[in-house]
């Protein structure tokens, strides 16, 4: 794996929230990501980047407990996540990991208020609803509306707001910006930055808007072909764009196993 900076760590020092060691995950026994070592600490925003099919979503689903891991270890908030699928995801959620999947998994037949009520995860301290709504003033007037009738941007905000209501210690977001206007994406990412700084929540996000994601993130991992090919502080990666381009556009330069360690 390429490491842009030997002292890669961004603003480490906080409690380590997520550790994967040699994680291999996939679907129906067929692996899609291999041998991942990922670490996220409290207060960090970490971007997971990579071309389509690189295994970003697979990684998130495995960490959140929706997919069984095939090999390696995952530790979320200090506790190992078992390999059995049954009943895993909801336990991970109760431990304090909030996962907003692609499409946000809203309940379209329920109202915005009902969706938010479901955000109070059993066994977790509740965030103040008013406080969270202050962050998303647009939702304030939509509380009685069915979630299915919201616009795309409003749905993303609702998804994020609902996730925040359980006071997550680790927030995992899969393409929250999907289909949103660039300006909105920027706003969403900046509010994530604020959340991480203000509450010490660790945030892992998958994002296709690479430069915007790097602007908000502390660190980034780059996946290609199911393997980590690059890792480093966001500023470094943003500055050395040619490295990113290589991992997005072809593995020819790196070969199967990525560039040699420097």
């Amino acid at each position: 794996m390429g490491r842009v900076d030997a002292a890669a760590g961004g603003r480490t020092g906080g409690e380590v929230l997520l550790v994967t060691r040699g994680l291999t995950g996939g679907y129906g026994g067929v692996p899609a990501v291999f041998d991942l070592d990922i670490e996220i600490s409290a207060g960090e925003v970490v971007a997971l980047l990579g071309p389509n099919g690189a295994g970003k979503t697979t990684t998130l689903l495995t960490v959140a407990g929706l997919l069984p891991s095939l090999a390696g270890e995952i530790s979320v908030l200090g506790e190992p996540v078992g390999r059995r699928r049954s009943g895993r995801a909801h336990r991970v959620a109760r431990r304090g990991l909030a996962f907003v999947p692609e499409g946000t998994a809203l309940f379209f037949d329920l109202t915005v208020r009902e969706n938010l009520r479901l955000g109070f995860v059993p066994g977790r301290r509740r965030a103040d609803l008013e406080g969270v709504l202050d962050r998303f003033p647009a939702l304030q007037d939509l509380l009685g509306r069915k979630a299915g009738l919201l616009s795309g941007g409003e749905q993303r905000m609702l998804g994020l707001a609902r996730a925040l209501l359980s006071r997550p210690r680790l927030l995992v977001l899969d393409e929250l910006s999907l289909g949103l206007a660039p300006l909105l994406v920027k706003q969403l990412l900046m509010s994530l930055r604020e959340i991480a700084d203000g509450t010490g929540t660790g945030i892992m996000l998958v994002e296709q808007q690479v430069s915007m994601a790097l602007a908000a993130a502390d660190r980034a991992y780059v996946l290609s072909g199911g393997r980590l090919v690059l890792e480093g502080p966001a500023t470094e990666l943003a500055a050395r764009h040619e490295l990113l381009e290589t991992s997005y556009l072809g593995e020819v330069a790196f070969g199967q196993d990525g560039p040699e360690e420097t």
Binding site: A64, L66, S86, G87, A89, H90, A93, R94, A98, F99, V100, P101, A105, L106, F107, F108, D109, L110, E114, R117, L118, G119, V121, P122, G123, R124, R162, S166
Partner: peptide
């Protein structure tokens, strides 16, 4: 009730309710 709300939600989207810490089972 919270139970009823969670059941209605799970009827629509099982993934969603699991991610919010409820046991579907």
């Amino acid at each position: 009730t919270a139970f009823g709300l969670a059941t209605r939600a799970s009827a629509e989207n099982e993934t969603g309710i699991v991610l919010l810490g409820r046991s579907r089972n």
